[in-house]
């Protein structure tokens, strides 16, 4: 995750979120990421100045052997949700007030049988539901990648579908 120069039309500092990254934000900024079959879930707690987002690659940690060459905290959708939810609760967030939004899960290689995009979304919805979090908005599936910008000060998420294949 790295900071990039802010756009002239955007007063917010901008952060680019790469695959397998995630964080809690307490300062206003615009978090950008690009999704294909990967999933981003945004969390926003109105009035409490807390926001979070991750960009995960695969559905469930239990389905994969440990790989010490890659960071694990935000590689899997299930663990990513639990990690950020725990962090938000530790910082005093009221679970019932957390707004979650889900994005990504495109089938960027349709017909290949193993639809990881859909499984990523199923996992995100299931874990959020079982964690008692409300999904207020989502834009998932399809065959196109998505560019996403998340405002950590308002919880707004702007999505643009993109035609070319992306990696995340």
């Amino acid at each position: 995750m790295h900071f990039v120069p802010q756009s002239p039309s955007s007063p917010l500092p901008t952060v680019f979120l790469s695959v397998c990254e995630g964080a809690v934000f307490v300062e206003p900024c615009a978090v950008r990421t690009v999704l294909g079959s990967c999933v981003s879930v945004t969390f926003f707690v109105p009035g409490e100045g807390l926001a979070a987002i991750f960009h995960a690659l695969l559905p469930r940690e239990e389905e994969h052997k440990p790989d010490r060459t890659l960071g694990h905290a935000f590689r899997f959708v299930d663990r990513s949700i639990r990690t950020l939810l725990d962090e938000l609760l530790a910082r005093g967030a009221n679970r019932r007030r957390i707004e979650a939004k889900v994005f990504g899960g495109a089938s960027i290689m349709p017909g290949k049988g193993f639809d990881v995009g859909r499984r990523n979304i199923e996992t995100a919805y299931d874990i959020l539901s079982s964690s008692g979090l409300r999904v207020t908005a989502s834009s998932v599936g399809g065959t196109l990648g998505r560019k996403l910008v998340f405002r950590t000060d308002t919880g707004e998420v702007f999505v643009k579908q993109i035609g070319r294949t992306v990696t995340g």
């Binding site: 756009s7 002239p8 039309s9 955007s10 917010l12 901008t14 615009a30 950008r32 560019k147 910008v149 405002r151 702007f158 643009k160 993109i162 070319r164």
Partner: peptide, 10 residues
Amino acid sequence: LLAVLSDEDA
């Protein structure tokens, strides 16, 4: 409001 979604950035 965010120019980061502009076409040239895609």
